[in-house]
């Protein structure tokens, strides 16, 4: 069966989805990713969905779920590279993906993750709930 590779980069996990997700694949990814977060105790998860052109409410929920699950396991999720059509579809479906951080591309997503982890480590302050800007 197909699997979506989960790469480890230091403290972060990197998932690039290069195919259109179907339901079973998404569920497998959800399970694998949570396992991987636990195993590597990663501080951040970056999901690149720039190649995904089709989403439905199920897929939107899976992405939201992954974010919530990682959060419980003390790791932040950033979704990067969402296509305009996908963004519009999710909004029309009423899934604004609250709690998920977003960035335009992988680079900005990485910076965002780093800044979030740094903030947490260095200053021990409360994290910006809206997700501060990629800077």
């Amino acid at each position: 069966m197909d699997r979506i590779p989960i790469l480890r980069m230091g403290n972060f996990l990197l998932v690039t989805i290069q195919v259109d997700l179907y339901d079973r694949l998404a569920l497998t990814l959800e399970a694998d990713l949570v396992q991987m977060v636990k195993k590597t105790s990663a501080k951040g998860v970056l999901i690149d969905i720039s190649a995904v052109t089709i989403v439905d409410s199920f897929m939107g929920r899976i992405i939201g779920n992954i974010a919530s699950m990682s959060k419980i396991l003390d790791s932040e999720t950033v979704v990067v590279g969402m296509q305009p059509a996908v963004a519009i579809t999710l909004i029309e479906l009423g899934l604004p993906l609250k709690g998920v951080h977003t960035a335009l591309d992988v680079e900005r997503g990485m910076n965002l993750l780093k800044s979030m982890i740094d903030d947490f480590d260095d200053e021990d302050i409360e994290e910006d709930p809206d997700g501060s800007l990629a800077e």
């Binding site: 963004a87 909004i91 977003t102």
Partner: peptide, 13 residues
């Protein structure tokens, strides 16, 4: 609100 949310999903503010 929809437009703002869609922009946020794209990773912009």
């Amino acid at each position: 609100i929809k437009t703002v949310s869609a922009t946020r999903l794209m990773g912009a503010e």
